[in-house]
């Protein structure tokens, strides 16, 4: 029987140059429910699909506001995300305390990137089993960053991670050109549409299973859940659905 000898720890390369533990950690991200993030010139939006383990249990938290100017959305091991979010909270408070300024998103992202990287190079450690989207506004404007268990971080215009997120990314790629000039409301609708596209047939977005996080220039990062998002859920898909079909129609024609 085949047995992989190179996945016992996260410090050993396979002969092909892969680190299996890190790749397995990235699989953990794909097990998590989908989260989507988009930025425009003025806003950054996170949208997330929440899951409950069973009918009677509560929904797992997917979006965590960290500071007044940014928040994170997670896909994967929620407990690992909590460790990272506690660290990020501490770092942003420290920035406020020592410099009296909100921490730069690029800064906080590279700090958790560095932390995650050490887990892939020290014996006896385990990579974080969670992917994050970090979205908000700093002195340089709105930003969206993606964080992976490998320690890779990159700035994105739009991004989706988690289970079935390929469908969400397809939607985002198709509408990429529209994001930059989008208003707050348009951006939220795009995020919800991308989220909806990645749902399985038998599911739909409800006020119970959807989370939204919105940050903007001169606007604090705020999380919306439950009744607060009912309005967006009602209106998001009406006009968009038409436009969507129209767009596809054009493609077929050509």
């Amino acid at each position: 029987m085949f047995r992989n000898n190179y996945d016992n720890d996260s410090v050993t390369f396979s002969p092909q140059g892969r680190i299996f533990q890190v790749e397995y950690a990235q699989e953990a991200v794909k097990q998590g429910s989908v989260v989507v993030g988009i930025v425009s010139k003025t806003h950054a939006v996170l949208a997330a699909l929440k899951r409950n383990a069973e009918e009677l249990s509560s929904y797992q938290k997917k979006i965590i506001p960290i500071d007044t100017h940014f928040g994170i959305a997670l896909a994967g091991l929620a407990s690992d995300a909590r460790v990272l979010s506690n660290f990020m909270k501490q770092q942003s408070l420290a920035s406020r305390l020592t410099y009296d300024r909100p921490i730069f998103l690029s800064e906080i992202t590279s700090r958790i990137g560095d932390r995650a990287q050490t887990n892939t190079q020290q014996y006896g450690k385990r990579p974080y089993g969670v992917g994050l989207l970090i979205a908000g506004v700093d002195a340089k404007g709105p930003h969206l960053f993606e964080f992976q268990p490998s320690g890779v971080t990159q700035e994105m215009i739009a991004c989706g991670i988690g289970a079935r997120s390929q469908m969400a990314r397809t939607y985002l790629e198709r509408n990429l050109d529209e994001f930059e000039g989008s208003s707050r409301e348009e951006l939220i609708k795009h995020a919800l549409c991308a989220l909806k596209d990645s749902l399985s047939q038998d599911k739909e977005l409800t006020i119970d299973n959807t989370s939204l996080g919105v940050g903007g220039i001169d606007e604090n990062f705020k999380m919306y859940e439950g009744q607060d998002i009912a309005g967006w859920l009602e209106t998001a898909f009406e006009s968009k659905a038409e436009g969507e079909e129209g767009g596809e129609g054009m493609e077929v024609d050509s």
Partner: peptide
């Protein structure tokens, strides 16, 4: 100069 460290910082 927006992202520059200010005198206040």
């Amino acid at each position: 100069t927006k992202a520059l460290m200010s005198a206040k910082n």
